[in-house]
Every structure is written in structure tokens, then in C-alpha cells.
Design a protein around this nucleic acid. Structure first.
Lengths: 201, 201
DNA sequence: GCAATTCGGGAGCGATCGCTCCCGTATGCG
DNA sequence: CGCATACGGGAGCGATCGCTCCCGAATTGC
């Protein structure tokens, strides 16, 4: 058509994600975004319609990035379930610390800030939660099928607890709690799954 | 002195608490507060200095109210630990539903919204977290001393997990999750404490 | 009763909010 | 080249933000 964009739209969304993630929706102004993304208001609105739409895009981008990474870490089917789980949980509470801790999880922060008031946003946070919940269920079911977990274990109930624990861990990371304490909680959560059944060979 | 106040200051703080609780700090305007508390801006500022000070007072009031109720529920020393714990956890995810669910916990909402950016507020949220953590440690230690929990149980680690679970539960209540799922998580968390030791009589 | 003092109410401050419009410019298509 | 089109930049819109000041009214101590 005509003159092409002089900035990378995806980079801009990434920057917006970081800003919204750190400060939340209401505390981030359009001018803050403009400064961070190196965009004038006109370019910003032409490209992203409005603040709310940009926020939703940022949330979608975060979900895509994180669920990709999570899948990579959870699909290591050849390793012991407990080990995979432990490393994933530890990653969840250290990943935001790319030079800057205390950011927590963008989805959790958003869910608590906006609650159930914003329909579009709630759909996203709920979908993200469901992905994590299902991933945990699958992981545990797989562990039981592989004989790593007791057949007596109610894996769905355990997944429900682990999922709840994940949310709690991310709140605590946001609140600046020590990694040591979080690790204690994680290790105990894994012990919750019970001892490995005696090998049948 | 002179003309006395025509409104009840404590009632006003309570109303402010409800508003901040539901909407968060940034999304609640001084005019919203004025409408809710039936106060003109001048009265509001004369009485509470500014928005931030009122927020801190609201947070303190919430903490006082909740920790009082929590102590009442946790200090029932004559009842089984698991039962006390279960009822307390269930109460935590249903108490905000005084005709209106999805509010979560004011402290958790605040901690995730403001993170570590607001020093005064962070002191409060951290203190509130520490009270809960300690209450759980005491409860479990007491349960072990009473012979209801195994001597092998690492009660401090268990308390760490339970505390993390509490935060997760309150996020999920805020997010509108079914009570049924939360109950599943709670029951599994309690099962985590292991079976009661065989009676020694 | 009188002076002192704080009250509730409202107008309105400067600043910032989300957002729009216009303009000169650079680019792609025929 | 010439036209259409989207660009980056900036001024500025009305609304709302947190907050202040001034007012007449009401209640106290003397």
C-alpha cells in the first residue's frame, strides 16, 4: 500500500507486556506506554485501537510465550515426574527475575486487579488458568501410568492442590518472598504426592 | 472544642475498605469514595489527610477485623487440628461472599496490585502474611504436640505449603472459581498432613 | 450571649487521564 | 513521475484525576 511501519509491532507488544506486567492496568498510562514503546499517541492508537485492546494483546502475548515455555518444560516425558514438576515450579518463581524480581505472574496480577469485572480479560485469565490446571492433571496422570505415582493417588485432587499452590507461589514471588521459603513449600508439595511405589521388577 | 462530626469515622473507614477491596487502589477515585462514604472532598481530606492515608487505614482495619476472626477460629484448641484447619480454609474462600463473591482477599489483591513499590503498604501486607504464616505454624505444632500429627511431619514445611495454598485459594476466589474445586484442593491439602498416628492408649 | 473552632458543602485549582485530529513526509503502485 | 496511502510527530480535546480553598452553619467553652 503505502509507507511501511518504522517500528516492530511485536517488539512494541512485548514492551507493553513488560510495563503492564510490572505496574498493572490502571497504573499504566498511555503516555507511559508511548515513552516505553517509542511511539507517539497517534501511532499507538492507529496500531492498537486503544489502551484496553493493547492490554489484551499484551496478555495474549504473555500467555503464548509462557505456555510455550511451560509445555517445553513439562513435555520431557522421559524424566521422572517429580523432577519435572520440581524444576517447573522452581522456574515459575524465578523466571520473572530476568534482572528484575517481584513481578509475579502477569495473569495472576491481572486476575486479582480486574477480578471478574472485565469480561474479555477474564476470558483470557480463565483460559490461562485452565491450561495450567490441565497440564498438571496430565503430568500427574502420566506419572501414575508410568508407575511413578501410587495408583491410590487421586491425581485430579492433587492437581487441584498443585494448581492452587502455583497461584500462591506467584503471589509470593510478587510480594518479594525469599526463594528459600518458596522452595520449602515446593518440596513439601511434591512430597505430598507420596513415595514412589515399589518397583515391580 | 467546636462542632462535632456528623458522620461515624469508623463506618466511613469500613465503607472505604469495601470499595478499595473490590476495585483496588488505582481504580478507586476520591469521588467514588466521597459518594460511598457520603462525604464531601473537604470532609474526606480533613479527616483522612489524603487518598493514600485512607487506603492504609482501610488496609489496617481489614487486617484487624480479619485477624481477629481468624484467631477466634484457630484458637479452638479443644477440637481436632484437621477439622479446625478445614473449616478455617473453607471460611477463607467463602467469607468475602457476604452477598458478593469474587472479592478475594484485600491483602492479596493489594500485594499483587502494588507489589513492592509502595513501602508503607508493603509493610502492612507483609505483616499480614507473617501473621497467617505463624498461625499455621502454631496450629500444626500444637497438633503434633497433641499427638494428632505424626512426629515425623515437618510442620514448618507443611505450614509453608499451607500458607502458599491460602494465597492461591484467595486468588481463585477472586477469579470466581467454583467452591467445589476449591474444596477439593483444601481436602487434599489436609490429607497432605498424613494419617493420624495410632493412638497410644 | 459571644468568641473560637470545626463542621458539611461546593466551586474550582493544576495536572493528568484516554484519546483525536491535523500536518508534513515518506513510501508503494501504476 | 503522480497519486494514494499510511506514516511519525505534536498540539490539544473534554473528562477526570487528587486535592485545596472558602463559605455559612453548627456546636463548644467561657
Amino acid at each position: 500500500m503505502a509507507r511501511p511501519r518504522q517500528f516492530d509491532e511485536e517488539n512494541a507488544v512485548t514492551s507493553a507486556t513488560h510495563l503492564f506486567w510490572r505496574r498493572g492496568y490502571h497504573a499504566t498510562s498511555v503516555r507511559d506506554l508511548g515513552d516505553e514503546l517509542k511511539l507517539t499517541p497517534s501511532s499507538l492508537y492507529r496500531t492498537f485501537t486503544d489502551k484496553h485492546t493493547l492490554f489484551v494483546r499484551a496478555l495474549d502475548r504473555y500467555r503464548a510465550t509462557e505456555s510455550l515455555e511451560a509445555r517445553r518444560r513439562l513435555d520431557a516425558t522421559d524424566r521422572p515426574v517429580r523432577e519435572v514438576l520440581r524444576e517447573w515450579l522452581l522456574w515459575l518463581v524465578t523466571c520473572p527475575a530476568d534482572g528484575e524480581s517481584g513481578r509475579g505472574c502477569f495473569v495472576v496480577n491481572t486476575a486479582t486487579e480486574l477480578g471478574t469485572t472485565d469480561e474479555k480479560v477474564q476470558q483470557r485469565t480463565e483460559a490461562a488458568f485452565e491450561v495450567t490446571r490441565q497440564a498438571l492433571r496430565s503430568l500427574l496422570a502420566e506419572g501414575r501410568d508410568h508407575g511413578e505415582l501410587s495408583g491410590d493417588l487421586d491425581t485430579d485432587a492433587a492437581a487441584e492442590l498443585l494448581f492452587t499452590t502455583v497461584l500462591g507461589l506467584r503471589v509470593r514471588e510478587r510480594a518479594g518472598h525469599d526463594l528459600e521459603h518458596l522452595t520449602t513449600a515446593i518440596d513439601f508439595a511434591i512430597r505430598t504426592l507420596g513415595p514412589a511405589p515399589a518397583a515391580s521388577c
